[in-house]
Each structure stands twice: as structure tokens, then as C-alpha cells.
Amino acid sequence: MSGEEEENAAELKIGEEFLRAKCLMNCEVALILDRKYEQLQQLSDDPTNQISQVFEKSMQYVKRFSRYKNQDAVRQVREILSRYQLAEFELCVLGNLCPETVEEAIAMVPSIKRKGRIHEDDAIEKMLNDLSLIKKFE
């Protein structure tokens, strides 16, 4: 291990594969899993026996930690965040954690300040405001 290629989400080193992959915010996952769960329910009386523990745990988790419940809100969040030239991963971290201040946002996603991208504090602040607006009007 040379050490340099080591993964570090803070520096967005998560591997080519995941960097290209579509990330999902918890709220999005909640919607997907919910739908899947419904499907299973239709097929069997007791879906709990069909779903894996991983599924179950994930579902509980995303339900607990979804900032946005409403499907439209979820869509809006992604829409807004995607205006800011964020990497998928960054976008989802922000969407999941909903930082309230610029400082917090940078602590959560240090990579938005690095990488030489133009992320003025103002821009970040605007982004956070937009997010909180969605929450407010959900």
C-alpha cells in the first residue's frame, strides 16, 4: 500500500467507480426502498421474511435520517444542489447532513473548498439557504 491512493472521502478519493456512480441521498433511498417494500408486500403476506436484514436496516436508517419526506422536495433538493457543480458524493453528503452554516458545510465536505473549484463562501451560503427553504416549505 503506497498510502497515497488510499481512500479518503474528505478528499473525494472514493475510487473511480464510485466517483462515477450515482449517489443517493437518504431521502431518495427511502423512496426507492419504500416502493420496493410495497411491491414485496403485494406478493406476500409477510414481507418481513423475504427481505434481508440489510434491507431492513437500511430502510429503518434512511427513514430516520431523511431530511425531506416529500417526493417533490427530494427532487427539488437534487435540482438545487446540482446547480453548484458538486460531485455526486458531495451533493449527497450535503443533502443528507443539511449543514446550516458555511463553516459546517466545509467541515462536512472539505472537498468543496479544495480541488481549486470556485466555491465562494457566498455561493455556499446561498446553496444552504435554498436547501433550508425547501425544508421550510415542504
Binding site: E7, N8, A9, K13, F18, V54, S58, L97, M108, V109
Partner: peptide, 15 residues
């Protein structure tokens, strides 16, 4: 598929 993969350095919420 939906996959869950934790990364070093990732910040997330947990119970």
C-alpha cells in the same frame, strides 16, 4: 442496485 458503501473520511449520521 442500491448499494451502501462506507468510506474512510465520510461523515454520516448513525444511531
Amino acid at each position: 442496485c442500491v448499494a451502501f458503501r462506507p468510506f474512510k473520511g465520510e461523515i454520516l449520521e448513525a444511531v
